[in-house]
């Protein structure tokens, strides 16, 4: 009898479930997709401009998905991420309106606004006890409505310095990619090395258990939604930077994309289980799918169909199944 068994553990083999849980599964699919694209059109796919396209697509999605990842880990869901990004993008362009001196204060203001939205979510969920789905469904409409009230058409103008962050690149790597890398590093560090990170898994896994063990459940939930709000606002700033103007539909559908990549990455929508590595793999995979439609000169209208097929196929194989 081995020591592990003696200590009461069951020995286990690496299984598909483990691959899913650790987020490795989606990377395998990603690798397969890259191989397929290399075979289909090596020159086009590996061209720096195309790689830059893919990476650019990951930035906004990735930032927003980091926030969604945190909220889903907490056992919730944030449907307002898209409209929060929209409002942030619209206000960024409108308030900067071409004046370089306004850039920094406006960007900081947007992050604060995102944080404020998060505080509202967190309090409604943790203190009032409303379901996250309902709360953020309501704010999805509220925030989108606010954006339309401000403007129904693209408006404002970001500075050239800000748009350079989104549009210029070194070789295949856009500057804005550094923003994503930094954000990933911060979130990964927070999850792994702070008490909040540990407690987030506990709150999402079993709120009653967390409370019984003295975890400040409300504070943890509010923090998760605040981080999600700030990240959504940051995604909005980069949306504005990329478009150079602010559009009241800039972040349309982003909330669904973020849920998609979080789920593809093997994170449980029930909360408490998830891998950041998996979510990042999901971000890359979805970005790859969108940009490859253009690369392979397929009609753009196919994007949604392909997305649906990819999600269903991946889910059938990898997604954490509901356990009975």
């Amino acid at each position: 009898m081995s020591a592990a068994v003696a200590a009461g553990t069951r020995p286990r083999r690496i299984s598909l479930a483990d691959l899913t849980r650790t987020g490795a599964a989606v990377w395998i699919v990603l690798l397969a997709a890259v191989l397929a694209l290399t075979v289909a059109d090596a020159g086009g796919f590996w061209a720096p401009a195309n790689i830059a396209n893919v990476l650019t697509a990951t930035v906004v999605l990735g930032l927003a998905a980091l926030g969604q990842h945190l909220v889903v880990l907490s056992g919730g869901i944030d449907l307002s991420i898209g409209s929060a990004a929209t409002l942030s993008a619209l206000l960024t362009a409108l308030l900067i309106n071409g004046y370089p001196i306004r850039t920094a204060p406006v960007v900081i203001g947007m992050l604060l606004l995102g944080g404020l939205i998060g505080v509202l979510h967190g309090l409604l969920v943790a203190r009032v006890g409303l379901p996250p789905f309902i709360v953020t469904l309501a704010t999805l409409y509220l925030i989108q409505g606010a954006a339309f009230t401000i403007s129904t058409t693209p408006t404002g103008r970001v500075t050239s310095a800000l748009s350079a962050v989104a549009l210029e690149r070194i070789g295949p790597v856009p500057y804005s990619f550094a923003v994503l890398v930094l954000a990933v590093a911060v979130v990964a560090f927070v999850l792994a090395r702070t008490a909040f990170g540990r407690q987030l898994y506990a709150v999402g896994g079993d709120p009653a258990a967390a409370r019984a063990n003295g975890v400040p459940v409300a504070r943890v939930l509010v923090t998760a939604y605040v981080l999600a709000g700030v990240l959504a606002a940051l995604a909005g700033v980069l949306l504005a930077a990329r478009a150079t103007v602010g559009s009241p539909t800039a972040g349309l559908g982003l909330e669904l994309s973020t849920i998609t990549v979080v789920v593809l990455g093997g994170t449980s929508l029930l909360g408490g289980r998830g891998s950041l590595v998996g979510t990042l793999g999901g971000v890359l995979l979805l970005s790859l799918v969108s940009s490859s439609v253009t690369l392979l000169q397929l009609p753009a209208t196919l994007t949604d169909l392909i997305r649906g097929v990819v999600i269903l196929a991946a889910a059938a194989i990898f997604v954490t199944r509901a356990r009975r």
């Binding site: 898994y201 896994g205 063990n213």
Partner: peptide, 30 residues
């Protein structure tokens, strides 16, 4: 209290479970 309904979080490590809610930190880090 140790409740009848166990409050061990299955997805977390034994160590993280034992320290849950009592995380020892220095300068904000575990």
């Amino acid at each position: 209290a140790v409740y009848q309904e166990l409050t061990v979080l299955p997805a977390m490590s034994v160590g993280d479970n034992v320290m849950l809610g009592q995380e020892r930190t220095s300068r904000g880090l575990i």
